[in-house]
Measured scan of single mutants.
Amino acid sequence: ENVVSAPMPGKVLRVLVRVGDRVRVGQGLLVLEAMKMENEIPSPRDGVVKRILVKEGEIVDTGQPLIELG
């Protein structure tokens, strides 16, 4: 699984990683606000951040690609 998608609609509050960062399974990639709750979106696997597909403040839909892992 190379693309991390939004599990719910919401607003991207914070991106916690940068392109080139090594991440571990379960590590927070970004914080999504949904229904006034902050939800940290975890990495599904170990890898390297290849691309960040959203910006802070952006509104996303369920299933929208957020981050690509390499």
Rank of each mutant, 00 (worst) to 15 (best):
G70K: 11
I67Q: 04
Q64H: 07
L30Q: 11
R14K: 13
E68G: 15
R18A: 07
E68K: 14
I59V: 00
K36R: 05
V25R: 07
L30D: 15
V25M: 00
N2F: 13
T62S: 02
G57W: 04
I41C: 15
Q27K: 04
A34M: 04
R18C: 14
M37C: 14
G10P: 15
P65N: 01
V15I: 09
V48D: 06
G57D: 02
A34H: 06
R22T: 00
S5I: 05
S5M: 03
P65E: 01
V3W: 00
G70F: 08
V49K: 15
V23R: 07
R18I: 11
R18S: 09
D46T: 06
G70E: 11
I41N: 03
V48M: 10
V31H: 02
V49W: 15
G47Y: 14
D21M: 13
L29N: 13
V48S: 12
R51S: 01
G63A: 07
M8G: 10
T62N: 09
V23W: 12
S5A: 09
D46W: 13
N2C: 15
K11S: 06
M37S: 06
S43L: 08
P7Y: 03
P7K: 04
V54M: 02
G10C: 14
V60K: 03
L16Q: 09
E58G: 12
M35F: 00
L66T: 11
L66M: 08
P44N: 04
V15G: 05
K55Y: 03
L29K: 15
I41G: 14
M8Q: 13
V60E: 14
V4L: 05
I59E: 09
L32W: 03
V4Q: 00
L66V: 07
V15M: 00
N39C: 14
L32Q: 12
D21N: 08
G47A: 08
V17S: 00
M37G: 05
P7C: 14
V49I: 00
S5T: 00
V3H: 06
R14I: 01
P7L: 03
G63H: 07
E58T: 09
A34E: 12
P44W: 09
V31C: 15
L66H: 15
D61Y: 05
K36I: 07
P42M: 11
A6H: 05
Q64K: 11
L16H: 10
G10L: 07
V3C: 14
E33W: 06
L32H: 10
V15A: 04
L30E: 14
I67V: 08
N39A: 12
S43D: 12
R18V: 10
I41P: 08
V31L: 11
